[in-house]
Nucleic acid binder design. Sequence first.
DNA 1: CTGTGTGAAATGATTCACAGCG
DNA 2: CGCTGTGAATCATTTCACACAG
Lengths: 223, 223
Amino acid sequence: MSRGPYNLIMTKPLGAPLPTIRRLPVYVRILKERHEAGDIWISSDALGRRLDLGAIQVRKDLSSVGAEGKAKHGFPIAETIRVLTEFLGTDDYAEVFLIGAGPLGAAVLADDNVVRHGFKIVAVFDPDRDLSGAEVFGFKVFPLSKMTDLVRRTGVKIAVLAVGPSALREATDVIAATELEGVFDLTGLAPELPKRMVVVREDFGSHLAALAGELGGKRRAER
Amino acid sequence: MSRGPYNLIMTKPLGAPLPTIRRLPVYVRILKERHEAGDIWISSDALGRRLDLGAIQVRKDLSSVGAEGKAKHGFPIAETIRVLTEFLGTDDYAEVFLIGAGPLGAAVLADDNVVRHGFKIVAVFDPDRDLSGAEVFGFKVFPLSKMTDLVRRTGVKIAVLAVGPSALREATDVIAATELEGVFDLTGLAPELPKRMVVVREDFGSHLAALAGELGGKRRAER
DNA sequence: CTGTGTGAAATGATTCACAGCG
DNA sequence: CGCTGTGAATCATTTCACACAG
């Protein structure tokens, strides 16, 4: 999100529709899965079935970012992975900082999917001084104050924000002072961040609520 | 998601557009925030600004589920919370099971947002027999095999799936045997689940990749 | 005036229909 | 045939424009 409200002139095209961009990583994961299983080709239909999407949508998505398939065979798995990850720019953004070494931060560190998608947490920061120097899943925890400098020196462009409410202010202040380009905000508190940064927000609570809402809707519809 | 592909006849109306339903919980959170701060009224504009949404969208969303505002004042916070949570059915779905007591499961248990949105994890299950009986954040961990029976006895309708790849098969088999209505799948592995269940899937990895994709898109657009 | 409420218009995404290729 | 590729049609969501209420 963070698609600003009054976008009068010149809306920027991202090269593909946003929903497509959001599906891309999911394709990549399945493709890698098939690649590891030794498959060479996959049809849009097979790919779609795996994800409850129509074959046509898969083709539209893939073709909109320049991936090409071959009639009769489908899409060449290795090449398609290449095109997709290049489009996603995963390689340019592979190194990520993590802010927050609590249970949520630990879950991010332990998450295979983060690795599977080609990312690497390269440093962990925490506002709590008591945690500095501690180790979480083999990562040494740095004091938050070191981050500004490390962003500059390493050129890392994405941070995952996973702190609790008490440390939020301090964390956002530090982030605002950096040249970071994107923040993955897991706090669920929708903190204000500089407009120049792309922010993706997710939290367990609101997804649960949305799920409950869908269930409630289904129930409503059935009566 | 999990909107089936070939939905030939009779698409079910959920009472409101899906994107709206997904924004509702976010409104609720902000409203509760303001409520606790002692505010009585909030304007659609203030609410929208807090979330990078236009005021009009907020009004459409709220009015589409029956929340009413008053000219000059805005929306009455307490009443609006009531209407929204009733629509979302949070109360009917407040009790949730958690499958998986690893770092990810622990993060869910420790997450304030889950509570803030009105949910309560009422039991934790894990396929790993060694974990059974252990305690995570004050929750006793039950063997997965107990779940089928407990779903029946308690009437819980939602489970959060947070296991690793090795336990996935066992977990999905157990889920499929229950009368659960919704699954919040955090595995990132898109396991097959019965069509009758509403499934919401989220994983850190693909959101990171989508973020990288947006950043890449922005960069592409700037040249 | 400052705000809500809503039909109508605009935008955006998905799905269809069919041409084309191996 | 089996499968891709894509303009055109459909469908969904957002935004606009303006009526109306305190």
